[in-house]
Amino acid sequence: MPRDIVRKKITKNAYRITSKRAETCLRVRVPGGHLDACLLDVVRSIAERFGDGTVHLTTRQGFEIPGIPWERMAEVNKAVRPLLEALEVPLGVTFVDLDGGYPGAGTRNISACIGNRVCPFANYDTTALAGRIEAAVFPHDFHVKIAVTGCPNDCIKAHMQDFGIIGQAMVEQDASRCIGCEACAKNCLKRVTGAISMKNNRAVRDPRRCIGCGECVLVCPTGAWSRDPRKYFRMVILGRTGKKNPRMAATFLEWADEEVVLTVLRNCYAFIDAHIDRSLPKEHLGYIVDRAGWPAFREAVLQGVSLDPPLRVAETLEFSGYFYERDRVFR
């Protein structure tokens, strides 16, 4: 074991401190959580050659390869190259040294539900968007968690992230195809927000209640409802787990296009840089905003964003979380 390890340097290289002093563990990113199956062989080979032969599947859809002796990091970094070339370079991520391993690990893997490559409910290709977000934010040392999900079912738990991106379908109706069967209205009432009502035997959507899930398109037997092929997203922000004040993310933007999403994500780093409490090893964005104030955050991340309709920006954030006020709960 080397005598002197620069902790911050190895962390930035995607290795972590483990409970075994002689060993480290490598974090492998899989942006969007979808990869060519042959890459599993690369992961497997790293685990078997350098690690303890096991692999952990992370909640963020990456791999952690444990049991790597500290002294083998340089070899491992070379072995990681095929992963970088297959999973990062095609997205547009640039590397100073492709044999140097991961250049950052603060901003975590961009996780994604399976998206419309498989799931009928998804309103877009989540893996592809995760890739474009990866290109926009990776590598970065600030600890930011981003996840993208295809629809408000939120299978990826975007609500537990600093930034959660939820696909929205801007549905349009060809009224001449509506036969008044009420399939959409009944479904919306039972499963969603009850945004569709019947007027003169035709389905009418209340845009204020519609969350863009796209289910009306799925259930309409005549194709009267369809999606505007342009993609829109709802962004929920500042959700978190943790030891202080876990909470669900709150809706910040609705009907944002991809450019808005990417701009807000890019902008958040300057805000963090300006306001983070550097006495902590890593302060989560939500706590920074709690301290620095929501208006300051909003102003910072919306810089350069054109606020034209249909984009809607929340005036306030509605969080639902709790503090560990244990005495109140346990008497």
Binding site: N116, P120, Y124, S226
Partner: peptide, 15 residues
């Protein structure tokens, strides 16, 4: 072919 107007997102409708 109505592009993007299929039942599922990014699918087309042919009618």
């Amino acid at each position: 072919r109505l592009e993007g107007r299929g039942r599922f997102s990014d699918t087309d409708m042919v009618r």
